[in-house]
Design a protein around this nucleic acid. Structure first.
Length: 160
DNA sequence: GCCAACGTTGGC
DNA sequence: GCCAACGTTGGC
């Protein structure tokens, strides 16, 4: 079991959008960064869990948890000239970009904000890629230790 | 292979 | 809207 963090701008696709999707599921298309692609294609396994992070919004935060429910497969939106993420250099015979299917798992009682996570930047979450300076990766791995710490933070908050 | 220019991300 | 931090592109 591997753990991940997936970013999405809520104005484009929010955690609630996922929850209200058919079968509470969607394909995670549009990743156009090689490092993120490699995590998806080479690292993700069916059954893995990921935090759903809201970026570029008023209150950046982890909203909840999703499950990876497929292996990686070619991102077909790269082949579609009318798609925002079209990439002519990705051909069906030799796909450049990949995606997985994700399903809503559960919401935190209260979103865990970036501001709160930063309180542990020098201690328990020092290794969290999300808090590293200048990090822009939309897909990143999380160590089990940090994953569990964040789960515990969310649990404490939900008891407030 | 170098590197300047440019585009994008994302917090604030 | 600003700007730092990158990643990508393309001329040389």
């Amino acid at each position: 079991m591997n753990y991940w963090l997936l970013k999405s701008e809520p104005s484009t696709f929010s955690f609630t959008d996922l929850k209200t999707s058919p079968k509470r599921q969607t394909h995670w298309d549009g990743v156009r960064n090689y490092q993120a692609r490699n995590f998806i294609r080479d690292g993700m396994r069916k059954g893995d869990l990921a935090f759903f992070y809201h970026s570029s919004c008023a209150d950046p935060a982890i909203a909840g948890i999703v499950r990876i429910v497929s292996a990686a497969y070619p991102d077909h939106t790269a082949f579609d000239a009318s798609d925002k993420h079209y990439d002519a250099s990705s051909e069906p015979a030799n796909p450049r970009w990949y995606m997985v299917d994700v399903r809503y798992e559960r919401a935190f009682e209260r979103a865990l904000t970036l501001r709160e996570l930063k309180q542990y930047k020098a201690t328990q979450l020092a290794e969290l890629a999300l808090l590293r300076r200048g990090n822009r990766l939309s897909v990143m791995p999380i160590d089990a230790k940090q994953w569990n710490f964040i789960i515990e933070l969310a649990r404490q908050h939900s008891q407030d």
